[in-house]
Amino acid sequence: MKGKVIDVTLDNVVGEVMNMKNDGQRLVSFSTYNAGEGKIGILYHFDKALENTHLRLVADMDKPIPSVSGVYFSALLVENEIRDQWDVKFDGLVLDFNRTLLLDPEVTKVPLANNLKIGPKN
């Protein structure tokens, strides 16, 4: 993967993101992936003068993750989206849609986390 990857933990993620902001980095987006049973991997992508930096956070899905939307307002959409897709809670989200940003309130399945495959997989 292009760019530098820095591993962060639940405790220092907000601080590291704050450092990034002070450094004049622009928050591009987050990417999420399944990092093993019950774990979610989040990559925070930053950009400065076309150079990429990523923060990698691997966290338990059942514990709330500190929100960085207080640092970068633009994180609110992507955090709400992760909330929709993985049912991961964020602590201190500026505007919390509570799993209704993309999904309807009556949806109970979590799209990316329940490993339910549509149709038989080869």
Partner: peptide, 8 residues
Amino acid sequence: KAQAWELG
């Protein structure tokens, strides 16, 4: 310029 950068 600063706003645009910060808001991504």
